[in-house]
Design a protein around this nucleic acid. Sequence first.
DNA 1: CTGCCCTGCGCAAAGGTTTGTGCAAACGTT
DNA 2: AACGTTTGCACAAACCTTTGCGCAGGGCAG
Lengths: 332, 332
Amino acid sequence: MNRPTITDIARLLQLNPSTISRALNNHPDVSPETRTRVQELAQELGYAPNQLAVNLRKRHSGLIALLVSEMNMFFNPSVFRAIEQEVYANGYHLIILQSNNTLNREKQNVQICRQLAVEGVLVSLASEAQELSHFAPLLDQKVPVVFFDRILPQNHSCSVTIDDVEITRLAVQHLADKGHRRIGGLFGDPNLTITRERFRGFKQVLQELDIPFEEKYAAFAEDSEQGSQQALKIMAQQPAITAFFAMSDELMVGAVQAIEQKRLRIPEEIAIIGISDGFAPEFYNPKITHIRHSGYEVGAEAARLLLGVIREEIKDPLHVQLACRLVELGSV
Amino acid sequence: MNRPTITDIARLLQLNPSTISRALNNHPDVSPETRTRVQELAQELGYAPNQLAVNLRKRHSGLIALLVSEMNMFFNPSVFRAIEQEVYANGYHLIILQSNNTLNREKQNVQICRQLAVEGVLVSLASEAQELSHFAPLLDQKVPVVFFDRILPQNHSCSVTIDDVEITRLAVQHLADKGHRRIGGLFGDPNLTITRERFRGFKQVLQELDIPFEEKYAAFAEDSEQGSQQALKIMAQQPAITAFFAMSDELMVGAVQAIEQKRLRIPEEIAIIGISDGFAPEFYNPKITHIRHSGYEVGAEAARLLLGVIREEIKDPLHVQLACRLVELGSV
DNA sequence: CTGCCCTGCGCAAAGGTTTGTGCAAACGTT
DNA sequence: AACGTTTGCACAAACCTTTGCGCAGGGCAG
């Protein structure tokens, strides 16, 4: 037979559906005997509540949406893993929507969130998003939103990021400590706040160290392939750089590729430092010195904040900046 | 005010809710004038149907579930990307459930699928899953299921995989063509069919090539770190191997790490070939020769099959094996 | 004995949408 | 003019669960 409903059980036991509901939910208004009778029959029939009806009645969906630019191999997997676990552990389910970095798709995804009555939204912005007005439909409905990683400065919602200036400072300082003064810099998509902040940090720290910033030693690239090409261009500049700073795993990989292509030895002939959650730096030998952040922690913290807002434990927008630390391996 | 409902519009226009519903759905039973009146007001109020109510009424959720062991950085991202796009393009939404490779969690996830009334399920099995009886609750309810990548042999549902023996044959044959006869083999989790098949293929192809299979040249490892250690052990065997075969990106990375640690040159002193979707092999110089499959294609095909079954265009279980090809770079 | 509370359950509404059926008016045919 | 068909909408049920309220019966105190 089809999936049994609460009314089926009611009919079989000569009870009212409401009693069945209460019995299954351990409501005190039902006697222990009937409760067990109901629960046993439910068990026997393999009853599972129709979540669709529950959702309608309770006016919530149990869904949390993750709006993300796209799945990539470096930062995302650990972030996702953390988010899914946190969300699952709290009885919600995770639905994933990609924007493919287009604003248009991001707008559509916001509408979908609204239609599905998701109870919270985690957002890593599309690079095309230069402002946040398209999130108004959600905020108007008081749907909690938490931005993470790829964010824009704002004060309406919680956010989770890494201290971009600080993380850059650690990296550049470390290179300077080792005596490097001509440092190549590889940066990501210049539309992103994260890129702009790290680029700003890079220049600022150089200045603090009395090292002049040279345009020719810095470049922007959106993936490993472009990063590799830009790295080659930078290495062709004279006087030659002695070290690379790469602001992400993609770019680190591109830089190493370029270095290996020119058959330079790391770290004897050229040093390299990156910002990473520590997986990609392990690919190489010597392993790459990096400033480590934790994608897992970013995801977990974002999810925790969101759940806090949903449960109304967090009232005001919190802007969390996670710590990072230097992991010194052999590449500098 | 709160989200407007169909009854709000009905009240404002002095019409019956059913008429509003039909007007919005372009049902012919409503006159063009009322239809436009309704649609204009709906637009103005920013009406969006309450998906929860629609779902209950239509007895479906618009959700497709992706059951996966865990997010990792190599194979999964491109698979996910493909699945999300395909699913989205067909008006469904994707909900992700991790099993963390435990059978228990996989069982729970099946129950969640049932409760949420998902309309289709894509499964990459947990390594603990040695049989498929825990999917019975879904199959009993005629919920379409498609298995991909990490599967078990079965005949009830569609599946999408790669021809494991063939892919191994290409790799080993290529090494043999280059004159290698002592070949180290790195394999993944031995609980997985995919591992067993590739291991079987490895031995079979060696036999066909009249190369004796040596236990000491083969090892199993579950991640890059273990892979690296196993690779070191294999390289310590005498007579020394001249080439590595790695059945996955994780293991390829581990092998390269071990090789670099021993300061051997690729390919002059040791060759390496892998099975990959082509991203990780780009990290290195020389780039790693590999047999290329496409995670994206696996995901897309699995999603397409699932949608076909949902739409009842596909009646009988299809078992698709995707093609792969040799990508010759510098590492052999 | 009266009035009150507590226990355990039923009744019905609510949540918002879709859809089978009914029905009145308008229109067409002979 | 009488009858049949079409058009355009209303009514109510259905999807399944939750929950405020009411009510009957039993127990207890005053």
